[in-house]
């Protein structure tokens, strides 16, 4: 019981991550693969944010009038910073991936992985 209460958040992120992982390796449609990659990245972001959390702590915006600052009172700002940058990288990789997929669709008129490989084999 102690283990379940302490670790259940990690298990939620692991199940989310595995949904994304399955979409990346089992789906044939390229757009579905990209959506799986996004779910995977979201799971990692949630994991990092949850490591920043401390019990009975508040957001890392300090009260200016406070004389002595107790670090246990504020949650850890470092994972928030790292994930803020990771979200932007996620958006830019998504944009570039969609651009590449659009060019692939223009070239082969399909988004299915196997059909693209078939067309490539016929060309040889």
């Amino acid at each position: 019981m102690e283990i379940i209460i302490g670790k259940y958040n990690y298990w939620i992120y692991i199940s989310l991550m595995m949904i994304g992982f399955y979409a990346m390796i089992a789906k044939k449609n390229l757009v579905k693969k990209i959506v799986g990659m996004n779910i995977f990245q979201t799971a990692i972001i949630l994991f990092f944010i949850s490591t920043a959390y401390k019990k009975d702590a508040t957001i890392p915006i300090l009260v200016k009038s406070q004389e002595v600052i107790n670090p246990a009172q504020y949650i850890n700002p470092l994972p928030h910073v790292l994930m803020l940058t990771a979200i932007v990288v996620m958006v830019s990789t998504f944009g570039v991936a969609l651009a590449i997929i659009m060019m692939l669709y223009k070239q082969y008129k399909t988004l299915d992985e196997d059909e693209i490989i078939e067309i490539l084999k016929k060309k040889k």
């Binding site: 302490g6 259940y8 490591t51 019990k55 890392p60 915006i61 300090l62």
Partner: peptide, 30 residues
């Protein structure tokens, strides 16, 4: 989950939280 003594929140982040107003005049640590 929510452990205040986890290794991630003991190494460098207490320094950031303690010094942010004194060194940068910015209450938002992020």
């Amino acid at each position: 989950w929510g452990d205040p003594n986890s290794p991630a929140s003991l190494h460098i982040s207490p320094r950031y939280i303690e010094k942010t107003i004194e060194e940068t005049a910015t209450p938002n640590a992020v």
